[in-house]
Design a protein around this nucleic acid. Structure first.
Lengths: 204, 204, 204, 204
DNA sequence: CATGAATGAGTCTTCATTCAT
DNA sequence: GATGAATGAAGACTCATTCAT
């Protein structure tokens, strides 16, 4: 049985999806409340029943986007045990994220980067500090590489720097795909990237 | 002797620089013609003596930005002879671009990506097709790798894919730097990145 | 025993009180139906069970306010017998009104004046014609003064004009008090005002 | 010869007049920028060339209104020498203000009172603190009465209270006139008011 | 030529009113 | 009968663009 509370949450969720799609397609600054409302099938005024400002909508949309990504990644990482498997899992999780969420949604990434770099939006900075997110990613990857070194499978590289490189390649791949997805096979490229990095840091 | 034509060009150039800086700092959509005009030291109305629309201004600003990058890169690449040297030169050229143009200007990159991905702007698409730019880059790197394979220094890898990886690492590095330049040494990271990739594709 | 009808009237009354207070505090145009409903403890939609529009609410609130004032005045005037006593009673009744209803409620007066002057609101004009109210007040005071003249205690003044003056002093006192109640003792001022006016019109 | 500066000031002034009239007629809260712009014969956007917000417009309009009143009063008071003359001058100055500015403009007074009582508008509080204005008026009248007492023409009354009464009657008269100007002769009433007060406080 | 004053289309946001439950 | 979710008309404000000087 559905309660009113559930209904409201449901509608809010639907609206957030509409917002995500609109923002992904047109960019954070080219989207109007009106557009989103129409695409969500509700009246303009109704938007303000769920959110108190445009900024709040965007915050919610981005948080939802990040949340979905994290959920997919958590599933992937769960099964990985050895350091190489874990690194592969991180890489693959992004491939899966792209495939699961789809190209149209993934375009949101560019706005997330733009916000992270510009930081002009307090509302967004609040729900999601990109610097912090990147820092945490780097820590996780660093720890995995360190485990590999201690386990005698990776060379004694500078873990922080290598972690940075690893994550950079992931982002770089994403950009390439976003700009021109026809001209690349993301899965094949990711596999080769993994081999390359492994060869670069593994003990022969 | 300076002609009127020169004066006009000079003014236009100064305005484009002002536009570049404003856009880089605030983002394409948060910049007003008025702001740029003031910061360029001319009247708002005068802007329309040089450009016929806001879009055209941004097109010119981005073209100028890309042109500066190309100029720096051309100097670097000129001296490189062997395939590894050439790849290193491409990577280093980006480090030098970052250092030469500086953080504030480099933020323009995010808008270039956004435009490239969104392609909602016909005016910009006309002066600068990012897909095309990436395609050409990939061709150049592919050719270099191919030379390396033919010369017996690189393994017989899938050149297009490896070229994509190589360029992805460059972009990825740039993003990391743009998001949090304090927490990374771009030159050191680039060096290690190069070593890693080389180990991955070089014949032992 | 309370009937349904009584309950409804009760609710309506409570709502009107809430409306009075809200309007008095924030002003006619800065009050929302929602605010009043919340402060009255009922749902926004329920308001329209009792009133058909915002204007009607304000009409009812103002009528209620005027009614309360009249009730207080009627009690006062009831005991007065001689013309001077009657005039004093009118003056005192306003002091008592201020003290009984309190500052927060009395601020409604400014909106009543504003409406009376502007008369842009047909709904309000209908339930309460301020011109008419003032006209009647003037008639009453005129009659009292006339009685005094006929009784040989007041000079043969222009009764209508003096009545106007008398009422003007009452309003003026109220304004002073509304604007800056800390810097005046309304009772003391009223007493002195009465003496002054009496000296002005009484036969020595 | 008119300079640009003069032209701009001129236009601004004209706009302020239009704003004053609109506000006086419809009330502070029922006036839209659009209305004022149309009535001033300029475009909506142009308004923001002269003022940065609606509040600023109202602040300017009220300051202008108060300024005009002060100018008229200053002229009147200039010639008065004895205390009774001075009090008469103050009273007459208000009559002249009403006649000079006219009924339509004088309605602004009600909004000034409302603002003074509600004080919800920081922009307006800044340009004109009504409490302060009333305080100063009271000081001036007090001093005049005190002079009269010292000069042996007025009884030893409580000057502050009498000053309050005097000013209250002025305001009260204004309200009566604003609410129903047909039913009173403001000049005749003011004259009688003055006689009454004089009889009340003058030594026989 | 250069300018900035003028403009109105476009955007966010509020809120009285309606209506399905 | 009571409710609050939904709505769109209305209003403040921004800014690219035009144009008279």
């Amino acid at each position: 049985m559905s309660t009113k509370r559930d209904d409201k949450d449901e509608r809010k969720k639907e609206f957030i999806f509409a917002a995500m799609l609109e923002v992904a397609q047109k960019g954070l600054n080219n989207v109007t409340i009106d557009h989103i409302a129409v695409s969500a099938g509700i009246g303009k005024g109704t938007v303000y029943e769920y959110f108190s400002s445009k900024e709040e909508i965007f915050g919610a949309a981005m948080a939802e986007f990040m949340g979905q990504i994290e959920a997919i990644q958590a599933r992937k990482l769960f099964r990985a045990t050895t350091p190489p498997e874990k690194l592969k899992a991180i890489l693959d999780s992004w491939v899966e994220v792209s495939e699961t969420l789809g190209y149209e949604f993934m375009k949101l990434t560019i706005d997330i980067w733009a916000e992270g770099i510009r930081q002009g939006n307090p509302e967004l900075s609040e729900v999601m500090n990109i610097k912090q997110v990147y820092y945490e990613y780097r820590e996780i990857v660093s720890a995995i590489i360190n485990d590999g070194i201690n386990g005698g499978i990776f060379n004694a590289v500078d873990t922080k720097t290598v972690a940075g490189i690893f994550l950079a390649t992931v982002d770089g791949l994403l950009i390439q795909w976003l700009i021109d997805r026809e001209s690349m096979d993301i899965r094949k490229t990711a596999d080769m990237l993994f081999q390359t990095v492994m060869q670069g840091i593994s003990i022969k």
